[in-house]
């Protein structure tokens, strides 16, 4: 059970974007509420303004069916113009799975998510190495720490051109890499063929994070683990 205890901390306000076809909106709302003690706003895709919030979450799912390139249509939606405007003013933006795809399509994060190396949808727990914890999203993790989150995607194969890869690697923008249980980053621990085993990246200001794995799916002991919880707790700590 997620905790229903109200914590005595200044309330952090969060908004979760809901597209037609989003299907992890409720899951992430549960994790956000559990960590923050307040219900997030659920913002429909046709909205052109966002409420005043500290955090925007773009959740997983199949926005508009993803019949075009994943996230391509959502990136053009009215609400994403508002998200971009808020991000430019410094609001933290977290994109998970389809949310990560949408953020790359919207230009808030570099690179693209291609079809998985094995061309199949993959749903399983993966191990991730925290490459850079110096952000509002990851301060409760340690650098080099190995965490376990589930992935559930068919298009999570991170790709960017050489120059972009050099830049994000050089600037420490890689947040998470797929790895073995012992932290070794290698081909066998790469579930989808991502360049450099990249599972999640920050923007250049470390205010936007996109990742394919789902922290909200292992944030409750009943579901088999709680490694994802620290991401939401990091945000509460940083933003309150």
């Amino acid at each position: 059970m997620h905790s229903r205890i109200q914590r005595r901390i200044p309330a952090v306000k969060a908004a979760i974007i809901v597209f037609p076809g989003s299907n992890c909106d409720r899951d992430v709302a549960v994790a956000v509420e559990s960590a923050m003690g307040t219900k997030p706003y659920m913002v429909w895709h046709r909205e052109t303004d966002l409420p005043a919030v500290d955090l925007v979450v773009v959740p997983g799912g199949f926005s508009y069916g993803d019949y075009l390139r994943c996230g391509a249509m959502a990136a053009q939606s009215p609400v994403m113009r508002a998200v971009k405007a808020q991000a430019a003013r410094g609001t933290r933006v977290l994109g998970i799975c389809n949310g990560f795809q949408i953020l790359t399509e919207a230009g808030l994060l570099p690179g693209a998510l291609l079809r998985n190396r094995d061309l199949k949808f993959i749903c399983r727990d993966v191990h991730l190495r925290v490459d850079n914890n110096d952000s509002d999203f990851c301060r409760r993790y340690m650098c080099g720490e190995v965490v376990r989150f589930p992935v559930a995607h068919a298009e999570g194969n991170y790709f960017a051109d050489d120059e972009t890869i050099r830049r994000i690697e050089g600037e420490g923008q890689v947040a998470f890499r797929y790895c073995r249980r012992d932290g070794a980053v290698d081909e066998a621990s790469n579930p989808n063929g991502s360049l450099g085993n990249i599972a999640g990246i920050y923007d250049e200001h470390f205010r936007v994070l996109g990742l394919m794995p789902h922290p909200e799916r292992l944030a409750d002991p009943v579901l088999g683990g709680t490694d994802g919880k620290a991401m939401f707790e990091s945000l509460v700590e940083a933003l309150s």
């Binding site: 992890c24 997983g60 949808f121 993959i122 749903c123 789902h214 799916r217 579901l223």
Partner: peptide, 10 residues
């Protein structure tokens, strides 16, 4: 079953 999302809905 790894091709099925068996965890969505949390």
């Amino acid at each position: 079953w790894e091709q099925y999302d068996h965890m969505v809905m949390g």
